[in-house]
Amino acid sequence: MRFVVILKQIPDDSIKEEYQDVDQLNDSDKNVIKEALDLRERYGGTVDVIGFGPLSAEDVMKETLTYGIDDAFLISDPQFADMDVSQVAKIVAAVIKKLGPYDLVLCGRQAIDGDSAHMASMTSCALEIPLIAYSDEITEMKDGSVFATCMGDQMAYKVEAKTPAMILSIREKNKNRFPSVPDIMKTYDGTYKTKILTNEELNLSVTKRKVTQLRKYEVKSSKQQKLVMSNGKDEEEKAAQILQLLKQKSVI
């Protein structure tokens, strides 16, 4: 079997300070990689990792190689800069198809930069394969189907889908794994390498639709609102004071 893991898009260095630290592989991505490696141990096959971002993201891809995956691919080209999530999904889907047959594509819940949480759904749409969302556990794979337990708002439920399929994984209870010394040495001496994929090689038709505006999250003030007590002598005077206050606050 062939398992493909999609890593989240890495923010460019110029805007990275606006987000949490992403110098290392984040925990969500590690969990998905561990889950794919667990599946490889159970069913055999290979685990490939695909990342999308600037060349600086190669450092993060190197970390994935230290876990013993089979191949790491980084989609990086100036033509792909500032693409919205729908375009990124189409490009990633085209690369997955180009790399050959696969059984499962796995990715985490959402990216730290755009925070759109649409990558899995849009990629599965582009690949024209079923999506299993919020999978907490892949219980079994047999007879061309994958079975999973998914988390809903009120309860867990069981899902079956034909393979190939997309898994949006929220699983955190994976086998504890650490980078091995041999894999670390082979990664950093150049034996294991991330394969850089540019559009010169992919030859994709790129639509020039780009992100033009990002909404920046504002930190809410921790200051408590000051309570205002009405001290009118009767109900009519109290009502007049409240009315005046609402006008001052531009409520009415």
Rank of each mutant, 00 (worst) to 15 (best):
Q213D: 09
N199R: 06
I170V: 08
T212M: 01
T207C: 00
L197M: 11
K216G: 08
K193P: 02
L197Y: 11
K186C: 10
Y157W: 09
L204C: 01
I184E: 01
S169H: 00
N174D: 12
T198K: 06
K208P: 06
L214A: 12
R209T: 15
K186P: 03
P179E: 07
F178T: 10
Y192L: 13
R171C: 14
V159L: 11
V211H: 09
A165E: 08
K193H: 10
Q154T: 13
K173T: 08
Y157Q: 02
E201V: 13
I167W: 12
K195M: 08
K162P: 03
Q213I: 07
A165W: 07
K173Q: 14
N174W: 04
E160L: 08
G190Q: 05
K193E: 15
S169V: 08
K173W: 05
A156G: 03
N176A: 09
P179R: 09
Y217I: 10
V206R: 09
L202W: 05
D189C: 13
Y217G: 13
I167D: 04
M185C: 05
D189K: 12
T191C: 03
K173P: 03
L214Y: 01
E172I: 13
D189H: 13
K208N: 15
K193L: 15
Q154V: 04
N174G: 07
A165T: 09
V211R: 05
K162D: 14
A165L: 05
Q213L: 06
Y188W: 12
G190D: 12
K175F: 03
Y157I: 07
L204G: 01
N174H: 11
K216W: 03
S180Q: 14
N174E: 05
T207D: 13
K193A: 15
D183G: 00
R171P: 01
A156M: 08
I196N: 12
T187W: 03
G190I: 09
Y192D: 05
N176Y: 12
A161N: 03
